[in-house]
Design a protein around this nucleic acid. Structure first.
Lengths: 145, 145
DNA sequence: ATATACCATGAAAATCATTTTCAATAGAGG
DNA sequence: CCTCTATTGAAAATGATTTTCATGGTATAT
């Protein structure tokens, strides 16, 4: 799984006439070995611990490339930080965000997707992406009250 | 309808011990007399044309108050600009965004809301808000191709 | 291998949206 | 009219992201 994403990115780099570099590999490994929904800064700090001379700008640039190559997807939960999650071909999920502790759970639901397509169609739209986020309080935080 | 929103905001201002000012009224009128989904800058420029000495910061601050008072809702379509839309009590709608011309249509769907609640419940969440946006190409843009 | 051409990098400066600061001003109630 | 305190506008500050630019690295042709 990770191998195929590495390959996917390397193919993308080659196809675009870009270069394969040490930093890109470091960032790629770092990204693939983390939980989803990591903010740019979190990833930067994590990498920085092991490779102190990696640049902030390089992490930003490289994550954008990941998104372009299709192995990552940009997400924003309204906290002013851009996050990147792992993207898998043909697969999509949505998010449940706890507004108290910040936990993020993923879910996917066929029925909702179908309804979305139907709504879009009714309005004359050809949809290519969507974003669905449910904000609330998770069970742990509810018990803690 | 507009009158009741004005009243709603004035009540909010009074309840919070805030003051009713000329600027707030100007911004309120400006906001109420525009289409939905206006960005802060757009509103600022529109107001600025008539009232050249209104401050940027005041528009920001006032729009936040509108959101707190319940007559407006903050939205972001991922273009790096915060927008505000008219909010009506007990009413919620979602968005269809055309990624080509930028048009935004609103819709609402009972069935989807119900499914969302069920999903949240299944995951132990108590949901208080959600955000659903469908991104695609609108019918006009599709014909234009 | 070596040269060549061009891409990528890191650090710092620049940018963009938004927020805060601060001194001056203006509401609300006495 | 006075006083108290919230509000305003301008400018500075902030935080996230992007760009600049001189230097270094990579791929490909030689």
């Amino acid at each position: 799984m990770k191998l195929s994403k590495k390959k996917q990115f390397h193919d993308f780099v080659a196809r675009r006439g870009l270069k394969s570099t040490r930093q890109r590999d470091i960032i790629l490994d770092g990204f693939l070995s983390t939980d989803d929904h990591m903010s740019i800064e979190e990833l930067y700090l994590k990498l920085r611990a092991k490779y102190p001379n990696i640049g902030y700008a390089t992490v930003y640039r490289t994550l954008k490339l990941f998104a372009e190559s299709g192995i990552a997807r940009e997400i924003q939960f309204g906290d002013g930080q851009t996050r990147y999650e792992h993207a898998a071909e043909g697969e999509h999920h949505d998010h449940l965000v706890c507004t108290r502790c910040g936990e993020v759970q993923e879910f996917s639901n066929e029925a909702i997707e179908k309804l979305q397509d139907k709504i879009a169609e009714d309005h004359g739209y050809l949809v290519h992406t969507h974003k669905l986020e449910l904000y609330g309080i998770c069970s742990k935080c509810r018990k803690r009250e």
